[in-house]
């Protein structure tokens, strides 16, 4: 039960609410655990635009890649074994804010420009192939 207004308006929290909250939290935690422990150090940076591979680059070789597609651009910098976006013409700039990645469980996504930066390991896999 939750009394949130002083004039006595009540919202009765029911048992099913709590059960649902636990299920959702469990789903959230389970998927994060899977992501955190499912990753491995990567060697290659794979850049895809609109689902098609734009190029793959060595993570251990410093390089600046100008991803130009569909009259948009994202500048991807590979430096000290990490990949990150330094500049882009997308409106929200969330891709820049997502920071540097170096693990197969990480990605940078620029939704407006449909650009995805992934790290792939020596076995060419993401979290799914970690067990192999």
């Amino acid at each position: 039960m939750l009394n949130s207004f002083r004039n006595g308006t009540f919202i009765m929290i029911k048992k099913a609410d709590i059960v649902l909250a636990f299920i959702l939290m469990l789903a959230g935690i389970a998927s994060s655990v899977f992501l955190i422990y499912g990753g491995a150090a990567g060697e290659t940076v794979k850049i895809t635009v609109n689902g098609a591979i734009y190029g793959t680059y060595d993570l251990n070789k410093d390089e600046i890649v100008d991803v130009k597609a569909n009259s948009h651009y994202n500048i991807v910098e590979i430096k000290d074994g990490k990949a990150f976006i330094t500049d882009a013409d997308c409106p929200d700039k969330l891709c820049i804010r997502q920071g540097a990645i170096d693990n197969t469980s990480q990605t940078i996504v620029c939704l407006p420009n449909k650009v995805v930066i992934e790290i792939i390991g020596p076995d060419n896999g993401g979290p799914d192939s970690y067990s192999s």
């Binding site: 959230g28 998927s31 992501l35 895809t48 689902g51 098609a52 990480q106 990605t107 996504v109 995805v116």
Partner: peptide
Amino acid sequence: MAALVISNVKIMLYMPVLIISGM
């Protein structure tokens, strides 16, 4: 929908953050 638009399922990596923030 985003995975469909960019044709890349890797975006599902954001699922944990989106579940918790949605809650």
